[in-house]
Write a protein that binds this DNA or RNA. Structure first.
Ligand SMILES: Nc1ncnc2c1ncn2[C@@H]1O[C@H](COP(=O)(O)OP(=O)(O)OP(=O)(O)O)[C@@H](O)[C@H]1O
Length: 717
DNA sequence: AATTGCCTTGTTTTT
DNA sequence: CAAGGCAATT
């Protein structure tokens, strides 16, 4: 890093110049615990960016002693870039540039980094694999089968969620959990937990929660290791602190114990992850945990119009369990919030398109006129240049069949898209449940509007992608049972259920890894010769792949697998679905391209690491044109010009499962608050009269949340 | 072993 | 409705 002898006045000024007084004080308070507690859009994340730059430039702190924790990889990437930009501006280009970078990442990525180095102390190999959701369920199913537990009565998911929330987030080992177990279920869970951990260890794998839990255990058990990291990371910063769980809290606490330099920012109003163990109490107790803490409240919102800020204040005011903060803005009132009722989910999508393509660039006065009456009365209005599309769309609803009017609408939309008149990345559609994306997607497809859906079926959870990753995992970790089971007969090669279970017993009894077991298929008793040959053929296939992979890049290894295993042919079966799956595989190869500078098994490990911890939000590209659809949960920390909140109906938002517990209802409301505050300029709240739920159409009731915004801020349609 | 088709079950939200 | 499990086919 470049060190400056004297903090120069002008540089300090320019780092601080884009911050208000309170933000500046958070940046200047570099030593000791700092808590920034503030509402949405008040510039909390901005503080962290500037604080890192300030530490490096003005306090001459080495970048490598800075650790900043974000909620997603995308947020980490963005933060890195913004810090770098600030630094670049300050660094004299003639001076040599040190490549040292501050460490910015999620809790999980930080823990992986530590564990890759240190996990030997806990008896794991440091090339452990990371099991995702799917892998965990697959493993758990195996555990339950082995223990002869009825999976109908006790679902794998249930065990996993109890283990995650009650045991792992509270750092309880199977043994400790067993001691606390009281009733039958808990005792059973304790046994399952024990076996589950045992199998993870045998397969050299950790699940998501283990990453955090093991790191904490490591630090607690080996003070010398902890001290090493405490000395290394002298400055710790955490974004979105309200959504940390107990294990993460302990981790931050341990890391900062020596230096006491911990700066956390967050907003208890935006805590939306309690269902997975996040505890708002962490941020509320910060002052108790760190009595010397400096606490800073930011009150000015820089993101949204006055209408939006006021509306969100009213929303959150309905909650009882919350801190009493203020949030104001000096921005213009802007447009009112639109509450729109539509007939059903199909019309919901069409309404949104109508707003985006028909009216968005028109004046809002005009929109006022475009109410149903006018539209229905004058057919000729269709040729009207302004608002024509909305009219047309409403027209479709009128004469159901969807005649030439729909075509007109489609053509007009296409024209606008091609003309580059509409910047689709200014808009976002948010909803409560992923299932809602399907109907919206259909409408977007129908009108040829480019879009990206975040979440739903995540890229790395797609079957074809998981299959390929499983092949790669087998190459580097021959005892990865979950992956082995997944691809041993994919594409079909005559290795069925029976053969698999014989193989499983054999591997387990002889305590050999699965690849060895397959190789020694001729030693498996009572194995039909057809199955034996199939296994031996599979073994030679894998050995061949492994051999050839030695001097190939990850991308080439994927190609090799695709060709040698017949997977390529298997996928490209001539159907459109096959084509879509093939596209996903190409996308995977694009990701692999990043690792072109490496080769062999090691390169596979790097590649797998990249794929294990990413989140769908990480795929969001700002430049990418296309309308974005995601759950409100996924929108945390993001901002858009125009936000559509779809499905504002009782039972959906707030969700039916949250209605009877007041605490859960308040969490729903916080989610609502998050959704509304993503918007810079305009919010739409849409509710249907009828919605298909599990096949049958049901009448819906408008969400109680709609009434929580004062009338004068709303324009009712 | 693989394919087909009927049955149940269920989804809130996800690093 | 649709995914996953299970049984009855070939
Ligand atoms: N001092 C400032 N002057 C002008 N604009 C600012 C200032 N601070 C922040 N902003 C802008 O306000 C918006 C919100 O900032 P930021 O994302 O840092 O807020 P936040 O508190 O982290 O929000 P949230 O809690 O909703 O994620 C951003 O567009 C940012 O550029």
């Amino acid at each position: 890093m470049i060190y400056f002898k004297e903090p120069s006045k002008t540089m300090t000024d320019s780092i601080l110049s884009k911050l208000n007084g309170k933000q500046q004080s958070a940046v200047l308070q570099t030593e000791g615990p700092v808590l920034v507690l503030a509402g949405a859009g008040s510039g909390k994340t901005r503080i962290l960016v500037h604080r890192i730059a300030y530490l490096i430039i003005e306090k001459q702190v080495s970048p490598s002693s800075v650790l900043a924790v974000t909620f997603t990889n995308k947020a980490a990437e963005e933060m890195k870039q913004r810090v770098e930009k600030l630094l670049k501006r300050k660094i004299n280009p003639s001076q040599s540039i040190d490549l040292d970078q501050p460490w910015v990442g999620t809790f999980h990525s930080f823990c992986v980094r530590v564990l890759r180095k240190e996990i030997g102390a806990l008896g794991f190999k440091n090339n452990f694999l990371i099991y995702d959701d799917y892998d965990q369920i697959a493993l758990m199913k195996g555990v339950l089968e082995k223990m002869v537990i009825d999976q109908k009565q006790y679902s794998p998911r249930m065990f996993l969620s109890v283990i995650s929330n009650q045991a792992k987030n509270n750092l309880l080992t199977p043994r400790q959990y067993q001691h606390k177990a009281k009733d039958f279920i808990e005792k059973l869970t304790a046994k399952v937990y024990q076996e589950y951990q045992k199998q993870l260890r045998e397969h050299n794998a950790l699940d998501f929660d283990d990453l955090i839990m093991m790191t904490v255990q490591l630090f607690q058990k080996y003070p010398a290791v902890l001290e090493k990291y405490q000395r290394r990371f002298k400055y710790l910063m955490v974004d979105e602190y309200q959504d940390t769980n107990h294990a993460q809290y302990l981790l931050t606490n341990l890391l900062s114990k020596k230096s006491k330099n911990i700066c956390v920012v967050g907003d208890d109003w935006q805590g939306i992850y309690s269902f997975r163990g996040a505890d708002i109490q962490n941020i509320l107790d910060f002052e108790k945990d760190y009595p010397q803490a400096k606490i800073i409240y930011l009150e000015q919102n820089y993101r949204s119009t006055k209408t939006i800020v006021e509306a969100s204040n009213h929303i959150i005011a309905k909650n009882k369990a919350r801190t009493d903060k203020k949030l104001w803005t000096d921005s213009k009132p802007g447009e009112k919030i639109t509450v729109q009722q539509v007939a059903n989910e199909k019309e919901e999508g069409e309404y949104i398109l109508g707003e985006i393509f028909g009216l968005r660039e028109e004046t809002s006065d005009h929109r006022g006129e475009a109410d149903d009456e006018i539209v229905y009365e004058s057919e000729e209005e269709n040729n009207h240049p302004a608002g024509g599309i909305l009219d047309t769309i409403l027209e479709i609803e009128k004469n159901k069949s969807g005649g030439p009017e729909k075509k007109t609408a489609k053509i007009a939309i296409q024209k606008k898209i091609r003309g580059g008149l509409i910047n689709l990345s200014d808009y976002v559609i948010l909803y409560r449940t992923n299932a809602q994306s399907r109907a919206l997607e259909e409408t977007l497809l129908e009108y040829g509007v480019p879009y990206q859906i975040i979440g739903s079926v995540k890229f790395y959870e797609r079957k074809e992608v998981k299959d390929l990753l499983a092949y790669l995992r087998i190459l580097v970790e021959p005892n990865d049972q979950v992956s082995m089971k997944r691809i041993i007969n994919e594409p079909p090669r005559s290795i069925g259920r029976k053969t698999w279970s014989l193989l499983e017993n054999f591997a387990e009894a002889d305590k050999i890894d699965y690849l060895k077991a397959v190789k020694q298929a001729d030693k498996i008793a009572s194995l039909p010769s057809r199955a034996r040959n199939a296994l031996l053929f599979f073994a030679s296939l894998i050995i061949d792949l492994k051999d050839k992979a030695q001097n190939l890049k990850p991308r080439e290894i994927i190609d090799l697998i695709l060709n040698k295993t017949g997977y390529k042919k298997h996928v490209q079966d001539g159907t459109p679905e096959g084509e879509a799956r093939w596209e996903n595989i190409l996308e995977l190869k694009t990701v692999a391209k990043k690792f072109d500078n490496q080769q062999g098994l090691e390169s596979i490990r790097s590649f797998l690491e990249e794929t294990a911890l990413v989140n769908d939000v990480d795929f969001l590209e700002d430049g990418k044109k296309g309308l974005t659809l995601m759950t409100t949960h996924n929108a945390k920390g993001l901002e858009y010009k125009v936000v559509f909140l779809a499905g504002m109906e009782e039972g959906l938002f707030p969700h039916a499962n949250s209605l009877f517990d007041p605490a859960e209802l308040e969490e729903e409301r916080r989610l609502y608050y998050v959704g509304v505050t993503r918007s810079k300029e305009k919010v739409y709240l849409i509710h249907t009269r009828q919605r298909n739920i599990w096949g049958s159409s049901r009448i819906t009731i408008p969400s109680r949340f709609l009434e929580e915004i004062p009338e004068e801020l709303v324009e009712n349609k």
